[in-house]
Each structure stands twice: as C-alpha cells, then as structure tokens.
Design a protein around this nucleic acid. Structure first.
Lengths: 108, 108
DNA sequence: ACAATAGTTCAATAAGTGTTGAACAGATTG
DNA sequence: CAATCTGTTCAACACTTATTGAACTATTGT
C-alpha cells in the first residue's frame, strides 16, 4: 500500500500557512538549498539536522504547499512548488528567498 | 515608573521572527489595517479579537520588529516599521501585504 | 476624589511546535 | 534471503502559542 504523501492543491494553500512554514530557520535553510539545487534528495540535506527531524520539516513544507515530493526508487526528491506559489502569491517566494540569502551572507 | 515597551532595533530583527509574526491570521489582519490606516489605536481594532488577546498580538508584532508603538495620553498608537523593515528585508513587507490583500479579496 | 476609559499583566488552559531515539517499511544490493 | 540504505512513523519530552477572564495601572473627565 502506497503512502498518501499529502500535498494541498493550489487553492488550499494559505498565506499564513506558507509564512508559518517559512518562519523556521531550519526550513528556511532547506528552502534555500532547494532554490540553489532545484531538486534535492533528503539525504543531501543532512547538514540541516537529524534524519528524523528533517523528515518532520519536509512534511511541514509539503503540507503547507511550499514543496512537492517525487519518489524515485528508495529516495525522495524534493522541489519547490514555484509555479503554484507564484500563481497564488506572486513574488512572495522570491522575496523571501532573496532576503534569506541576504540575511545569510550578512551573518558571516 | 514607565513601562519599557521593548522594541528591537533594526539589526536585531530576524527574518524568521518577522515571518513568524506575520504567520498568524489575526496579526495579518492587524498589519493590513495598519497598512490602510497608517497609524491606529488599539481601540480601533476591536473587530480582530478581544482586548486581552489583541494586546498579546500587538506585543508579538512589536517584539518581532514589525510595529512601533507610540503612547499618546491613555491610548497607544501603533504603526508599521516600514523604513526599518524595508532597509532590513527589502520588498518583504510590501509583498506580504499585497498578497494578504489579494487573499482577502478572493475570500469574499 | 470618583468613576470611566485604554490597555497591559497575570494565571490558567488547551493545543501545537521542534527535537530525539527506537521501531518501522520499502527499495537496492550482496 | 539477508543486509543495507532511504526515509517515515511513533511515543515521549520540554517548550511555546493562542485564547480567556480577572486584576491591575495609568489617563481622562466629572
């Protein structure tokens, strides 16, 4: 039996939900890496925390509509839902990512 | 003895902090009203919740660096920290406000 | 001084958050 | 099949959150 792997469709995505998903430093880091890499497998994000904890944050991002997950063999490939987010909240994701990058470079 | 009324200075404002402050529907409503009215007294926001609860949300917004509070007699006047936020996270506040307005008009 | 007004603070509560380690399920490889 | 790798689920935990009502402080008006 296959997992449901719930992802909201575009009209179920809410602004508070997205902002909440993006309001955690770990998740913001994940989003930054997804922005840079395009699509990443979970195993490529070990720097951001423990396996279990990452799984939790991946679920938060996915359930908020920020990411989509594709299963490939034993791995899962995660990517940002760029078009959906842009359609629903124009400019939001890009602005947050740009500012997160800025904050990171200044934190050096 | 006067209250401290803590407000972070610009370099203490964090992106996760701001996003978290904006990730609550009540606070988003407050921000929308502040955007429309420029400066508002607490008593003018009774529609968004009880007195006590609003006081809590005002504090969250203020402590996150999203708003500043000015005391005028027995009232408090709340306003967005537009310049500070724009300097620290360019475009962020405007984008969030624009999308919150959009979400609100669609929710009719 | 008394009462009304504006808003905060406090204590309490129910629900949610981020984190961890152990156990689990599915795919891949020996 | 057994071992392994990828990632999720579960139970537990300490902590935070949003909300409420009662008590409080400060200001304004009578």
């Amino acid at each position: 039996m296959v997992k449901p792997l719930y992802q909201p469709n575009t009209d179920q995505i809410t602004l508070p939900g997205v902002l909440d998903a993006l309001s955690d430093p770990v998740r913001l880091d994940i989003v930054l890496q997804l922005d840079a890499d395009g699509e990443a497998r979970c195993s490529a994000m070990g720097e951001h925390g423990s396996k279990t904890n990452l799984s939790y944050h991946f679920a938060r991002l996915r359930e908020a509509g920020v990411t989509k997950t594709r299963i490939e063999g034993a791995s899962r490939l995660i990517a940002l839902r760029r078009e959906d987010l842009e359609a629903k909240f124009p400019g939001l994701l890009d602005t947050v990512i740009a500012n997160a990058k800025g904050a990171k470079s200044k934190a050096a």
